[in-house]
Nucleic acid binder design. Structure first.
Lengths: 98, 98
DNA sequence: CGCTTTAACTTTGTATTACAAAGTTTGCCC
DNA sequence: GGGCAAACTTTGTAATACAAAGTTAAAGCG
């Protein structure tokens, strides 16, 4: 049976799971791109990103180009935590097929 | 990208995800077996089971053998919902590997 | 220099809900 | 009846997702 205790609650939450999946798929995402992809309010999005940042999963880069632009990327720690999380998901999918 | 909107919140919650996975792995589970496998308080467990039952995902059978024994099983609807849920998990795992 | 616009962030409020702990019901066995 | 165990209900608390509105800062433009 899968080890459900290993499902990190911070990642498991639906919105943050979506964020983590997006961040894992590219080197970096701008705030605006995340927002339009996820269709969240900016307040909500920034809060989830802050949660992930506080856990050390997400790195934040602020730049001022034409407009201010904040970008987000997974840290090594975030990538590792996400990998562990995905490993449990795989176990669940396996168990569900059996 | 995975369709996160399709992640049924009732199933996605950690405890209920564990319950659904167990129920999917066998025809039927007694309350006691679920409880000892999941190490939840009985109040908490019964509440989650009721939630799943109200959604039509879980069938309940009460029998009095030696002791009273309540058993739980997935309904066809529950099995279908869980299958859809697992399908999204698969997409997430795939996306995470890419 | 104000004025507007946009990005990003903060604050506030609400509603949901997970969970534990304690209490209740029911029926068996002595 | 008394004790015990399964299953269930009630109650209380703490966490938190989310929206909406307000705030700050910087750029472009007249």
């Amino acid at each position: 049976m899968p080890d459900f205790d290993k499902l990190d609650r911070a990642i498991h939450e639906k919105s943050r799971l979506a964020i983590m999946t997006l961040l894992a798929s590219r080197v970096s995402w701008s705030f605006q791109d995340l927002k339009s992809e996820l269709k969240m309010s900016d307040g909500n999005l920034v809060t989830h990103l802050r949660t992930l940042h506080k856990l050390g999963f997400v790195a934040v880069t602020k730049a001022v180009l034409d407009r201010p632009q904040t970008s987000y990327a997974l840290t090594a720690k975030g990538r590792a935590a996400f990998k562990d999380y995905l490993h449990v998901l795989e176990q669940i999918v396996q168990a569900g097929k059996a």
